[in-house]
């Protein structure tokens, strides 16, 4: 149990980078970008392809990010220059990326030009590289004995991945927080908020949308590249429903932790991604559910995360109104009593 949940926290933190990307388009730019389903695999495929060909995993991860950035920019170009509806530009790019991803992974194929999956079994990844360094520190045994002391039975094989991903994700979060407060960042936010206004302050909304989509899909691809290295596997079907997972993380996080400031919201999105993974892991443990049911469960989680806050808000509102009414009735009664008392005296 502990190992399973531990694994989903690790994965959740990796997926959180993708969720931050979705937050950037969906919330900040107000652009429902479906490219994500494709660019996630672009990241996974590019990284896996390069690692298999013997490149340094860090370099492979960076190139994967750039590939995702370019894919996002293409969606932006379709929308701004081609004047295609945002949803449709994303869908078009997603479908185009399916073939492109097969070709990217196909570079490693000896027999054909396309390839639907690449295993990364005995290769170096950013995680194995980090673990080489981490295992020398001896922190694992300290933490593991702490867990055993608290009564934990099954132990994770290493804490390094969790630690490594926490650092990477937090650094990305901090850069993003900072970026959204720079002049360009402010302009991107205003583009999502009021295009007419930001144009009247000499900002080119087209370039800002393209840049925003590029950055977002760069993060999505980074997340894909890391997932491929974490699971030691890249597959063409990896990205199916990824946008919904991203949305689920954003919505769950926002509903639980609120959106008071940008720093708070980006934190909420990361936490949302982890919570989503935990719910997912718990659902998988239900005996009569099959892994094939997971997309349905994801959809249900998103629907609930969207509806429950509305219902809660409505109830709160009702309670408040009832309270106000009660206060008013009480005040009226009190006034009547005083008046009657006054009459009695006269």
């Amino acid at each position: 149990m502990f190992t399973a949940l531990f694994g989903s926290v690790e994965q959740g933190i990796i997926y959180a980078i993708m969720a931050l990307g979705v937050y950037l388009t969906f919330r900040v730019l107000d652009f429902p970008d479906l490219t994500v389903d494709g660019s996630f695999v672009t990241g996974a495929g590019t990284a896996a392809m390069m690692i298999v060909l013997g490149y340094n995993p860090i370099l492979a991860t960076i190139v994967a990010m750039v590939a995702g950035f370019l894919a996002g920019c293409m969606t932006g170009l379709l929308h701004t220059k081609g004047k295609i509806n945002p949803l449709l530009s994303g869908i078009l790019m997603m479908i185009a990326l399916y073939s492109i991803n097969l070709r990217i992974m196909g570079i490693t194929s000896d027999t054909g030009v396309t390839r639907p999956n690449i295993p990364l079994l005995n290769t170096d990844t950013v995680f194995t590289m980090f673990n080489d360094f981490w295992s020398k520190l001896g922190i694992d045994s300290v933490l593991s004995s702490a867990v055993t002391a608290m009564g934990g039975k099954s132990l994770p094989s290493t804490w390094g991945i969790l630690f490594f991903m926490l650092i990477v994700t937090l650094v990305i979060k901090l850069i993003m927080d900072r970026f959204l407060k720079t002049e360009i960042g402010l302009a991107i936010r205003a583009t999502g908020d009021n295009k007419r206004m930001i144009r009247s302050f000499s900002a080119n909304t087209d370039s800002l949308i393209i840049l925003g989509l590029g950055l977002s899909n760069g993060m999505v691809a980074l997340s894909g590249a890391l997932i491929a290295q974490y699971t030691k596997f890249a597959d063409i079907g990896l990205g199916i429903g990824m946008i919904v997972v991203g949305l689920a993380s954003v919505i769950i996080g926002e509903a639980i932790f609120g959106t008071k400031s940008i720093m708070r919201t980006t934190f909420a999105v990361i936490a949302g991604a982890v919570i989503y993974r935990l719910i997912y892991a718990l659902a998988l443990r239900v005996g009569w559910l099959d892994t094939g049911d997971m997309k349905l469960i994801t959809a249900i989680i998103v629907i609930l995360a969207l509806i429950i806050p509305q219902v809660l808000n409505k109830q709160k509102e009702k309670k408040r109104k009832a309270k106000r009414l009660a206060a008013r009735v009480a005040a009226q009664k009190a006034r009547l009593n005083v008046e009657q008392g006054g009459n009695g005296l006269a």
Partner: peptide, 8 residues
């Protein structure tokens, strides 16, 4: 020209 300077 808008850059990476803090807005405020």
């Amino acid at each position: 020209k808008r850059g990476l300077r803090g807005g405020v």
